[in-house]
């Protein structure tokens, strides 16, 4: 038994590392194939050829591809992700700086998405094929179908420009910038530590709109999965038995059916959380949110390869990790796969 497990584990590890190596090759190819010229971004429009060649040599752009790859992998194994052209800082520092902004955004989004999505999914399952089910499906699918950058713009026009209900672009109003010490990078946490609730409120004010739009876009998936898990449960015998035994409908739903799908829901929400990275790329552009998505796209436009490759690699690793996590959770908690 334990041998078998060990074998399964080794196999799993082999699979993951093969995927990671592939990931490396892929990101490298993407990075080096970029038609954008990073040297030109550094030296500018007016520079002459001598300056250009000097800079090309300095950043290693003159080496043949395979040598660049060896250099890249070698640096990676030493934990060196290179220096960003845009910021002049080690890419890893940059990412540590931009990640909290994105995590803050995505966390609020998932709270919103799951907070509405799960109850709606349960309601849809209970009301299966009745009007409520159709309405919920339609409403959540709208969130999934809207071009998120567009919704962001419309949201800004209505809630910021016209109504002034929420803050505009960025994480904070300028007035509040730098008022609380930057301890964690998460403005909400920093403000709470400092006890500055005015800054906290301002940050929430800026976070609300992009996070709820992002959350809305993830709601369809969460609702749909909740509905289908729930239906699974509701069709099972024990539910019928419980009902026959005289348990109230809401009690059966919440105490029995819902209790049984909690683990599945956790994995679904984890996967949805990863999926938010995608929406973040677009929504951050619209809301000038200084997060991971904006960092990645703006560096892509100037051909900042070290930064782009690290971002792509990071997204790949996050996704692999989330998939492994959800697999593991399934294996541990789902009796059928045990």
């Amino acid at each position: 038994m334990s041998n078998e497990r060990l074998f399964a584990f080794a196999r799993q590890a082999g699979t993951v590392s093969a995927t990671l190596i592939g990931l490396l090759v892929l990101t490298f190819c993407i990075g080096r194939l970029m038609p954008v010229d990073p040297v030109r971004a550094i030296v500018g429009e007016e520079a002459d050829q001598a300056t250009y060649e000097m800079v090309a040599e300095r950043i290693g752009a003159h080496l043949p591809l395979y040598q660049q790859f060896i250099r890249y992998v070698n640096d990676l194994t030493h934990g060196d992700f290179g220096v960003s052209i845009r910021t002049g800082q080690p890419v890893i520092n940059d990412i540590l700086h931009v990640m909290p902004a994105t995590i803050e955004l995505a966390t609020f989004a998932i709270i919103f998405g799951a907070g509405f999505g799960i109850p709606l999914g349960i309601l849809a399952a209970v009301q299966r094929n009745k009007p409520a089910d159709h309405v919920i499906r339609f409403a959540t699918l709208i969130g999934h179908s809207m071009p998120i950058f567009w919704t962001g713009m419309i949201g800004l026009i209505i809630f910021y420009a016209a109504l002034d209900l929420v803050g505009g672009g960025g994480r904070l109003s300028d007035y509040y910038v730098g008022l609380v010490p930057d301890r964690t990078g998460f403005i909400l946490i920093d403000a709470a530590i400092a006890g500055d609730w005015e800054v906290f409120a301002d940050a929430v004010n800026h976070l609300m709109l992009p996070a709820s739009i992002l959350g809305y876009s993830s709601m369809a998936y969460i609702t749909r999965m909740t509905r289908s898990f729930m239906l699974d449960q509701l069709n099972q015998e024990y539910i019928t038995t419980a009902r026959v035994k005289g348990l109230s409908k809401s009690r059966t739903i919440w105490h029995h059916a819902f209790a049984n799908i909690r683990v599945q829901l956790v994995t679904i929400v984890a996967l949805a959380y990863g999926g938010l990275l995608e929406g973040a790329v677009l929504i951050e552009t619209v809301f000038s949110w200084p997060g991971f998505g904006q960092y990645m796209t703006s560096n892509m436009l100037i051909g900042d390869m070290n930064a782009v490759m690290t971002c792509v690699l990071l997204v790949g690793v996050i996704f692999i990790a989330l998939n492994l996590l959800s697999d593991a959770l399934y294996k541990i908690f789902d009796p059928r796969t045990r």
């Binding site: 550094i42 030296v43 500018g44 007016e46 520079a47 300056t51 000097m54 800079v55």
Partner: peptide, 10 residues
């Protein structure tokens, strides 16, 4: 340094 801004003097 021979970087971007050297052009106008060069």
């Amino acid at each position: 340094l021979n970087l971007a801004q050297s052009t106008s003097l060069k």
